[in-house]
Simulated scan of single mutants.
Amino acid sequence: MSAPGDIAAFEAERPRLKRLAYRMLGSVSEAEDAVQDAWLRWSRAGDEIAEPAAWLVRVTSRLCIDRMRAAKARREVYRGPWLPEPLIEELADDPLERAEDVSVAFLLALERLSPLERAVFLLHDVFDED
């Protein structure tokens, strides 16, 4: 078990959280903001958390859902297609991390899902969560 606020435990999950948030939000800066908000909640959690990774993924997902709902309200007046900003980073050497990379076509397909459906789909198919 990790104590809430344990920097090492959070930093170990940060890359995963950023990938999840980027896939949900389609924006690097929005993803970083969501992960930062998750850090703030992590640092304020009062009791010991049995599964830090699960707790952080859940919190980050919920923060992303909130951001997507707010963005949807702002985008309702915009008639053009929503396209995610490209994520430019070096390819990982780990084949599992490469398999997690998402194409723009996949992100466009995700756009058609509701925020809750998108979170469920990503958690189940990308992160093998129930």
Score class of each variant (00 low, 15 high):
Arg75Ile: 04
Asp101Arg: 11
Phe106Glu: 11
Glu90Val: 14
Ala9Cys: 06
Asp93Glu: 15
Arg58Tyr: 02
Arg67Asn: 13
Leu113Ser: 09
Glu117Lys: 13
Ala92Thr: 02
Leu116Arg: 13
Gly26Met: 02
Arg74Trp: 09
Ser103Thr: 14
Val104Asn: 00
Ala12Gln: 11
Ala12Cys: 05
Glu90Arg: 15
Ala71Trp: 10
Ser103Ile: 02
Phe106Ala: 12
Asp93Pro: 06
Leu116Ala: 15
Ala92Arg: 03
Met68Arg: 15
Val28Cys: 01
Lys18Ser: 00
Trp42Cys: 03
Met68Gln: 15
Arg69Cys: 11
Lys72Pro: 00
Leu91Val: 12
Ser29Val: 13
Pro4Cys: 08
Glu51His: 14
Ser2Pro: 04
Trp82Asn: 08
Arg62Asn: 15
Asp37Arg: 00
Leu91Met: 11
Thr60Asp: 07
Leu63Gln: 10
Asp37Ser: 03
Phe10Leu: 13
Glu97Cys: 02
Val126His: 10
Ala9His: 07
Trp55Glu: 00
Leu108Arg: 11
Ala31Glu: 01
Ala92Pro: 02
Leu107Arg: 10
Met1Tyr: 11
Arg19Gln: 05
Ala3Asn: 11
Glu13Trp: 03
Arg16Gln: 04
Glu129Cys: 04
Arg23Glu: 01
Ser61His: 03
Asp37Met: 02
Leu122Glu: 06
Ser29Thr: 14
Ala45Phe: 09
Leu110Arg: 05
Ile7Thr: 09
Ala21Ser: 03
Leu110Asn: 00
Cys64Ala: 15
Ala99Thr: 04
Gly80Cys: 02
His124Asn: 13
Ala12Tyr: 04
